[in-house]
Write a protein that binds this DNA or RNA. Structure first.
Lengths: 315, 315
DNA sequence: AATTTCGATAGCCCAAGCCTATGGAACGGC
DNA sequence: GCCGTTCCATAGGCTTGGGCTATCGAAATT
């Protein structure tokens, strides 16, 4: 059975005339005759009564004709789905992002992206890298924003910016006017870091040798960067934050930001998506939007540093 | 677009592997690859992501796959209309059944059903509930015989009988003359149960508190009820079997059946089929045949108990 | 009886679909 | 880091079958 044959059946049922039905389906009359005979043979019953002057649909044929119409109708829907689905910037983009980036990047990113791709709403999943990775592989997410290193088979990555880290201390801390702090000096202080599972925790501990990065007491760990910021402000210790969490929007009188001395620790923030993802334009648009955002945010002192670092590595 | 191409699409969506999908559609892998590329070209979008290790359906492809399923489903109805005219009892009925029911029910059921619907041969798939469920949903099976609980969206169920469980012990066991055993007493014995995946295993463990139903040693699990029966007969331990596996046909001198004391644990055996299945009469006939069989088997002591239990719940 | 109409049949041709063989890319083991 | 394996894509050849034109045969009309 072919879709063509079904088209013939429907046309013939409507025209009740081989010649006209053939015209309507853009074939010759013998072609239609033959195709129909073949189908009737295959189904094992006569669909049409050929009488002298007229072609009549048989009782059992009628049910089949109606079913054939339905089939063709459903096929038409396939084509219309396909037509509407050709725009790569149409349809939701499922975006994963880690908790130390999402709250600082997305509020500014979403409006920019919406302007560039208004028909592409974002479905956002904020989670740890370790949970985002399998979701990306399984196709539950289309793209994730994470910090390097990040490597998965079949997954491409693109660094979108690099942001330096800075030390934050409570107001009145003896370091608050320092022009540069060495990472190793942090071992003298009560360093507050994120809970286990956050890649930013590992990056901070790696950047600051001398910290015992195993079995850190629970009291020194926070569940989010905002928790940590508040803990520092209340004098519980010092910490390290990425520059995107230190824009003027987050400034506080109780908190002083002290830069690291060179070389400044930093992290590379990247997009990651399956190489086989069928809407690369969506990725491009997302990357371009972040690019635009980083340039704009570059007006502020902290992000300018991020920008410099980014240019230095030639991204 | 051709029906063949749509079949390929559906098969590939299900198998997520070109080679296996090709096998399933009885063509070679290049044929399927080419046909799919042609269709994707015609529709103007990618339906599948080809990762090296995995084939994923794209978000937009998913809608088309589902629509293709619908088309094929409607085409199938054409054939089914043609086959029996209006006779729902013509054409094969694809029946799934779990391993703890099939061997005990089917040998008697098949002749009865054949007598009632001689033009409806059975295609039987014996498999675990977890494997039957997707096959039923995908339309690879028309109806399944399983033990409750069993719930799937769009699928109707009908309890056909309830069968009590009994304890089986080796000959000479100290319980062999007992009139009733409490489920909790089984924790004193070496209880042999089925491998993981069998719902009957879970039902037995649930009915017998005190058994450590986690991390059960492998040596105590069997791959079929017949294995278990033989293990009990050879003195390895005791077990629990459903009454349909304890008809006189299976009696053995080495094996003694001891009833549970009230309340007797049992399981409800049910039919399940898609609500949209277009041959409900076939289901009715199957259900009626089982009904007849249960009444007939009710002549034997064990099945009579099953019958009583069944009437008590008013099925 | 002659003419006309319309579906069926015959015979040919070409495109489409399927095959085998091979290529190429990416992952995993040593 | 290199080799082997796996798996999808591509190439090239063959066969099938759906399409065409030409013609036939039956029935209705003149």
């Amino acid at each position: 059975m072919t879709l063509t044959e079904l088209k013939y059946v429907v046309a013939l049922a409507q025209e009740r005339h081989f010649g006209r039905a053939a015209q309507k389906t853009f074939v010759t009359q013998p072609t239609l005759s033959l195709a129909l005979a073949k189908l009737e043979d295959e189904l094992g019953l006569k669909l049409f009564e050929r009488n002298k002057n007229e072609v009549l649909v048989t009782a059992r044929g009628q049910a089949i004709v109606e079913q054939a119409r339905k089939v063709l109708d459903e096929v038409g829907k396939i084509q219309s789905i396909a037509r509407g689905g050709q725009d790569q910037l149409a349809g939701a983009l499922r975006l994963g992002v880690i908790p130390t980036i999402g709250p600082y990047l997305l509020p500014d990113l979403v409006p920019i992206l919406h302007k560039r791709a208004p028909a592409m709403p974002l479905v956002i999943e904020e989670n740890l890298t370790g949970n985002l990775a399998p979701m990306l592989r399984e196709g539950e997410l289309d793209v994730v924003i994470i910090a390097l290193p990040f490597s998965l088979p079949g997954v491409k990555t693109l660094v979108v910016y690099e942001e330096p880290f800075s030390v934050v201390v409570p107001e009145g801390h003896r370091w608050q006017l320092r022009k540069g702090v060495k990472p190793s000096e942090l071992s003298e202080e009560n360093l507050l870091v994120l809970n286990n599972g956050h890649c930013f925790r590992d990056q901070v501990l790696e950047a600051c040798p001398g910290q015992s990065n195993t079995a850190l007491p629970e009291g020194r760990a926070g569940s989010s960067l905002e928790t940590i910021r508040n803990m520092v402000a209340s004098g519980l210790g010092v910490s390290v934050l990425p520059s995107s969490a230190l824009t003027p929007r987050y400034a506080s009188k109780l908190l002083k930001v002290v830069p690291f001395s060179s070389p400044v620790p930093s992290r590379k923030v990247a997009l990651a998506w399956r190489a086989s993802f069928d809407r690369p334009l969506a990725i491009d648009t997302l990357a371009a939007s972040i690019e635009k955002l980083v340039e704009y945010e570059g007006q502020t002192p902290i992000f300018r540093a991020a920008n410099r670092a980014r240019r230095n590595i030639g991204v």
